[in-house]
Simulated scan of single mutants.
Amino acid sequence: MTGAVIEVRDLRMSYGPKEVLAGVDFTARRGEVLVLLGPNGAGKSTTIEILEGFRRRSAGDVRVLGVDPARGDEPWRARLGVVLQSWRDHGKWRVRELLRHLGAYYAGYSGDRERPWPVDELLDVVGLTESAGTRIARLSGGQRRRLDVAIGIVGRPELLFLDEPTVGFDPEARREFHDLVHRLTDVEETTVLLTTHDLDEAEKLADRILILAGGRIVAGGSADELAREVAGETEVRWTRDGRRFVHSTGDATAFVRELFRQHDAEIDDLEVRPSSLEETYMKLVREAEGSAR
Rank of each mutant, 00 (worst) to 15 (best):
T190I: 06
L277C: 03
L128N: 02
D148E: 14
F245R: 01
T2S: 14
W238P: 06
S276Q: 01
D179T: 05
P171Y: 07
K44A: 04
L193D: 06
D61E: 15
G38V: 12
I209M: 10
A206S: 15
A4W: 09
Q85H: 07
R29G: 13
R135F: 04
R144I: 05
D163A: 10
E19H: 14
T253Y: 12
R228Q: 13
F255T: 03
Y105Q: 11
S291G: 03
R183A: 09
D170H: 09
V192P: 10
D124R: 08
V83N: 05
Y106I: 04
T190W: 10
G81F: 01
V20Y: 13
L147T: 06
T191H: 08
E229H: 12
D179V: 01
M1R: 07
Y106S: 03
E114R: 15
G142D: 03
L139N: 07
F161M: 07
V95W: 11
D200L: 10
E235A: 13
R77C: 04
R144S: 12
I50C: 10
A227L: 09
D10L: 04
E158A: 13
P116A: 14
L277P: 03
E176S: 14
E189I: 01
L98W: 00
V24K: 05
R286T: 13
G142K: 00
E287H: 12
S222W: 09
I211S: 07
D264S: 10
V246R: 14
T249Y: 10
E289K: 10
L160T: 14
L194F: 00
A231P: 00
V192G: 08
G31P: 08
P17Y: 05
L284D: 05
G127I: 02
V95A: 11
E49C: 02
V126W: 04
L205R: 07
V20A: 15
A42L: 05
L36C: 12
E130Y: 02
T27D: 13
A22C: 08
L37V: 10
S131L: 07
R29F: 11
F177Y: 05
P165A: 09
E201N: 09
R273Y: 11
I217N: 02
R175Y: 14
R30N: 08
V192H: 08
I267V: 15
L122F: 12
D25T: 03
I217P: 02
R216D: 00
A70W: 01
E158D: 15
I267P: 02
T234N: 01
L36V: 04
A252L: 07
R138W: 11
R175K: 15
T191C: 13
G41R: 01
L37T: 09
V236W: 06
R240H: 04
G3Y: 08
E164M: 13
